[in-house]
Simulated scan of single mutants.
Amino acid sequence: MPLGDSIAWGVGSATTSSYRQALWNMLAGQSRYSVRFVGSQASGSLPDFSNEGHSGYAIDQIRSGIDGWLTGTRPDVVLLHIGINDLNRGIDTAHALDRLTDLVD
């Protein structure tokens, strides 16, 4: 599950695939396992465009939705890219690490 803010969704990428395109290419070339992205969002121009990227979300907003998203998709691996919006907006930056730790826990 690609999880996070606008970068996970693909904002800023010409194809709205963001880092997920390169990741897909690397993982799809593996013969030991199969890969399937999961998430309630869809964006990009790659074979599997599922993701859990939410444009503009801060850490607390991801924390509010994470339990439902994980229950609905049951990912084996979560790639988390979050926190830029907190830092750019000055959202209690002194405790951003604490909120991220809570999210991961």
Rank of each mutant, 00 (worst) to 15 (best):
L97Y: 02
G83Q: 00
R32T: 05
A94D: 04
G72S: 13
S31W: 04
R36S: 14
L70P: 02
L70T: 10
A58I: 07
R89N: 04
N25V: 07
S31L: 07
Y57V: 11
I91W: 06
S34L: 08
D60M: 07
N85P: 00
G53D: 14
S50I: 00
N51E: 14
S31K: 11
I59Y: 01
S55R: 11
P47S: 12
P47H: 13
S55V: 09
I59W: 02
E52C: 14
D86I: 00
W69S: 03
S64L: 11
R36P: 00
D92I: 01
F49T: 09
Q30L: 05
E52W: 13
G56I: 04
S43H: 10
R36N: 12
R74L: 09
A22D: 12
A94R: 02
D60S: 11
G72Q: 12
D98T: 01
I91H: 03
D67K: 14
S64P: 02
Y57Q: 13
S43Y: 13
H95T: 03
S45G: 06
W69I: 02
D48V: 13
D86Y: 01
D67F: 05
I62E: 03
D60F: 06
D67R: 15
L70R: 12
L87W: 08
L79I: 09
R63I: 03
L97N: 02
T93D: 04
P75Y: 01
A28V: 09
P47L: 15
A22V: 09
M26G: 03
G39P: 06
R36Y: 12
Q61T: 06
G39E: 08
L87A: 04
S31E: 11
V38R: 14
L97M: 02
F37K: 03
H54Q: 13
I66A: 11
A28P: 06
N25T: 08
T73E: 09
I91M: 03
A42Y: 15
D92L: 00
V77W: 05
L87D: 00
F37Y: 15
S50H: 15
W69E: 06
S31P: 00
G56Q: 12
V38P: 08
A94I: 01
S34E: 08
D67A: 10
L87K: 01
G44K: 15
R74Q: 11
I84G: 00
I59R: 04
G90Y: 02
G39T: 06
N88I: 01
L70Q: 10
L80Y: 10
S55W: 12
I82Q: 10
H95N: 07
G65D: 08
S43T: 14
